[in-house]
Computed example of a mutant assay.
Amino acid sequence: MYAENIQRSVRRIDNPSIHQGINALHCARQLIAPGDWAFNDPFLLMAEDWFPKGVFDTHPHRGMETVTFVLEGHLEHVDNHGNGGVIQPGDAQWMTAGRGILHNEVPVAKETVHLLQLWVNLPAADKMVEPRYQDLIGSDMPRRQLDGVDIRVFSGVSGGVVAPTLNYAKVTVLDIRMQPGRGYEEQIPGDYNVFLHILEGEGTVGPDKQPVQAGQVVWMARPETGDPSGILMSSGSAGMRVFLAGGLPLREPVVARGPFVMNTAEQIAQAYQDFRSGAFGA
């Protein structure tokens, strides 16, 4: 028991815009831009995408994890390790690329899928682990229900409710739905780097009640202590839905190129060589 809980203030609010993606069928919003590795740590990037079948093709990854959270539509997943299935609205897929994987994510016919994809860095010691796939069904995830607030725990812990998700980096991911005019405080370790993506509605965040609205990414201040810290949220007249992610920074070098994220340029070169030589598999 600690004498006083640290209340996190808002550090920064981003207002990313929607733009055309890789072709005219693809709309995207870059919620977390790659490159500012120290600020984002242990997260690498986050994208919001709208796309039909035929936009993406089979592609490789190494050295990181992807968390794909489906908001609308149905997404078929397949990889070269025998995993496959359909991710439905409210579900997530946690894929550990590890030493190397080939995969594709394809909307079912005649549907446009709306999703979030978060890239989580793997610790240097775990960059070359065996690939792993975790299917996180929203209705099966551990759940907290408070007065007008519903929290699904996709990774980590919330209020003593623990997700079964297997992690290499310490990461908490929550889907928080607040009815109109509700207040809520999420407890999270003070040394975690935390951001909120406002999925729906509007409200306030932090002890100084910073106004937030749908589409924004809200970065919270870092107390830089392992003691518990509080993140205060209040919903407005339309309610509010929040995607919250927090993780313990790795504080390791990051070298990224395309779909590969390693610690040195030599490791990136080796990843491309392994991919081209067929070492990732068929």
Rank of each mutant, 00 (worst) to 15 (best):
R152L: 11
W94M: 02
A109P: 06
F280T: 09
P228A: 03
Q93R: 10
A38W: 02
R62T: 02
T68D: 05
Q20D: 15
L248C: 08
F260E: 05
P211W: 09
E252G: 08
K170G: 15
L45T: 09
P131L: 15
Q145F: 15
P123L: 10
T204S: 04
V212G: 05
F260G: 06
D274F: 00
P131E: 12
E185I: 06
G201Q: 09
Q179T: 14
V149Y: 06
N23T: 00
S17K: 12
G73S: 05
R241I: 09
G215C: 01
L31F: 06
L116A: 04
R99L: 11
M46G: 02
S229H: 03
P107G: 13
G84M: 03
E202N: 13
I198E: 02
Y192F: 15
S139H: 15
D79C: 06
W50H: 11
D135P: 08
Q270N: 15
G35P: 05
G63E: 00
V70R: 03
I18R: 06
N263P: 02
G85K: 07
I6N: 11
G203M: 03
G21S: 03
L44E: 00
M178K: 04
L250W: 00
F243R: 00
F154I: 11
Q7H: 12
V255N: 06
L232Y: 10
L118N: 00
T264I: 00
H19F: 15
F195Q: 03
V67F: 13
W37K: 06
L146Q: 08
R143I: 14
V70P: 01
L115Q: 09
P131S: 12
D49L: 08
V218P: 01
P253F: 07
V162L: 10
D147H: 05
H197I: 14
P42H: 03
R11S: 13
Y133I: 10
L115G: 08
L250R: 01
E266D: 13
V171P: 01
P253Q: 04
H197P: 13
E130G: 15
A282N: 13
F51Q: 04
V10R: 03
L102S: 09
H81M: 14
F69V: 12
S9Q: 14
N263W: 08
S17G: 11
G183D: 10
A47W: 06
G35E: 12
L199F: 02
R143F: 14
A238T: 15
T58K: 07
E186W: 00
A109R: 11
D14I: 07
L248A: 12
G90I: 03
H26K: 01
T165E: 11
V67Y: 14
G85P: 11
D57A: 15
A279C: 12
Q179M: 11
R11F: 12
G84R: 09
D49S: 09
V70E: 02
S277V: 06
I13R: 06
H26R: 01
E48W: 10
R152K: 14
W37N: 05
